[in-house]
Design a protein around this nucleic acid. Structure first.
Length: 136
DNA sequence: CGTCTGACTTAGT
DNA sequence: TACTAAGCCAGAC
């Protein structure tokens, strides 16, 4: 599954614009705002925090998320609606049960109905409910 | 200290 | 439609 970049050191070096702690805080802030019964994707979160190409970092952030974020982390799925992070709960079925308990429907055993429940953090930023994302 | 992997996504072939 | 390449960046070895 590894892409195995041939040269290995070819990545661009122009980063360091976003401290990782700040990145994590932003990710967690977005995840906390996901309403019950809704789901969003890693890529959408990445875009919302200003790191559109760092979807993997979002996954990494959730892998080591604090307890409060863990409570709503099951509302984050991949762009296909699949419960890729389901094993973090021991088994994807547990994650699915959590989502179903909130009213989320599934199109497959481990695939949510994104068309019905997808929540876009970019739109929610404007709602009065947003509290974790200060203006830059 | 170098290399690979990963709760991902997009674009190209 | 399926598979490959590449981009991101922090850990584990």
């Amino acid at each position: 599954m590894q892409r195995r970049r041939k040269t290995g050191t070819e990545r661009r070096d122009g980063r360091a614009a976003t401290p990782r702690t700040d990145f994590l805080e932003r990710v967690y802030a977005v995840v906390r705002q996901i309403p019950p019964g809704r789901v969003t994707t890693y890529g959408r979160i990445a875009r919302a925090v200003g790191a559109a190409r760092s979807a993997r970092m979002v996954g990494w952030a959730l892998h080591r998320c604090p307890p409060d974020v863990s409570d709503v982390a099951h509302r984050v799925v991949n762009r296909n609606g699949e419960l890729t992070g389901g094993w973090a709960w021991g088994h994807p079925a547990i994650m699915r049960a959590l989502l179903e308990d909130e009213g989320v429907t599934f199109v497959d055993e481990f695939q949510v109905d994104l068309a019905r429940h997808l929540w876009d953090p970019m739109e929610a930023e404007d709602t009065p409910d947003s509290r974790g994302i200060p203006e830059p």
